[in-house]
Simulated scan of single mutants.
Amino acid sequence: MAIERVREYLKEWGRENDILEFDTSSATVEMASNALGVEPCRIAKTLSFKTDTSARLIVTAGDAKIDNSKFKAEFSMKAKMLSPEEVLEYTGHAIGGVCPFGLSQNIEVYLDISLQRFETVYPACGSSNSAIQLTCNELEQYSKAVKWIDVCKGWQDQ
């Protein structure tokens, strides 16, 4: 199970017991927000995109949307999301539980600056009913992110 792989992965930082598991689904930003009792914008959603030869993950705030022109400027290619089957292949996580931890393949992870307005955020942990509370610094460290990027819109007015 993917959540067990994430639990094992988080042992490196002694955080394996900090994963929150819910009786209800947290597969969408809205569901995760309800399960956690926090604003949807504080959910750290992980989006999966194709590259020329592999995939990349971008973790954004729950209220942010990919800005195609910013994405193209950052990556020199059009934003094209992975299919659910490709997501599972590249990450080892099914849609609804995708996170930047315990990945099945060595793919690049980027963090969008939309997250930086919060002291803590809540990414999933490999299942559709899990999350963990992390600071942005912890998210950067644990995800082994390449860098912080600015590829989203819709959150600046929030």
Rank of each mutant, 00 (worst) to 15 (best):
A2K: 08
R7N: 09
E8G: 02
Y9Q: 00
Y9D: 03
L10W: 00
L10K: 04
K11G: 02
K11T: 07
R15Q: 13
R15A: 15
R15P: 01
E16G: 02
E16R: 00
N17Q: 08
N17D: 12
N17W: 11
I19R: 01
I19K: 00
E21V: 08
E21R: 03
F22H: 02
D23H: 06
S25I: 03
A27H: 02
A27W: 04
M31H: 07
A32E: 08
N34R: 11
A35F: 05
A35W: 10
L36F: 14
E39Q: 06
E39H: 06
P40N: 06
P40W: 04
R42M: 15
R42W: 10
I43T: 04
A44T: 08
T46D: 06
S48H: 04
K50T: 03
T51E: 12
T51Q: 11
T51C: 14
T53N: 13
S54E: 15
S54F: 05
A55W: 06
A55P: 05
A55F: 09
R56Y: 09
L57E: 11
I58H: 12
I58L: 13
V59F: 14
T60M: 08
T60N: 01
T60L: 11
A61C: 06
A61N: 04
A61P: 02
G62V: 07
A64I: 07
D67V: 06
S69P: 06
K70I: 05
K72H: 10
S76L: 05
M77P: 00
A79D: 08
M81W: 07
L82W: 10
S83F: 12
E86K: 07
E86F: 14
E89H: 14
I95D: 01
I95Y: 01
I95G: 00
G96M: 12
G97C: 12
V98R: 04
V98A: 03
F101P: 07
L103H: 10
Q105F: 14
N106H: 10
N106C: 04
I107M: 14
I107Q: 12
E108T: 10
E108K: 11
V109A: 00
Y110W: 04
L111I: 02
I113Q: 13
S114C: 06
L115Y: 05
L115T: 04
Q116P: 03
R117L: 01
R117P: 04
F118N: 01
F118C: 04
F118D: 01
T120E: 15
Y122I: 12
P123Q: 04
A124L: 05
C125N: 06
S128L: 04
S128P: 03
S128N: 14
N129S: 07
S130M: 05
I132S: 00
T135K: 09
N137A: 13
E140W: 15
E140Q: 14
Q141P: 02
Y142D: 15
Y142P: 05
Y142W: 14
Y142L: 15
K144H: 15
A145I: 11
D150A: 02
D150M: 02
C152Y: 03
C152A: 13
G154P: 05
Q156D: 03
D157Q: 08
D157H: 06
Q158H: 03
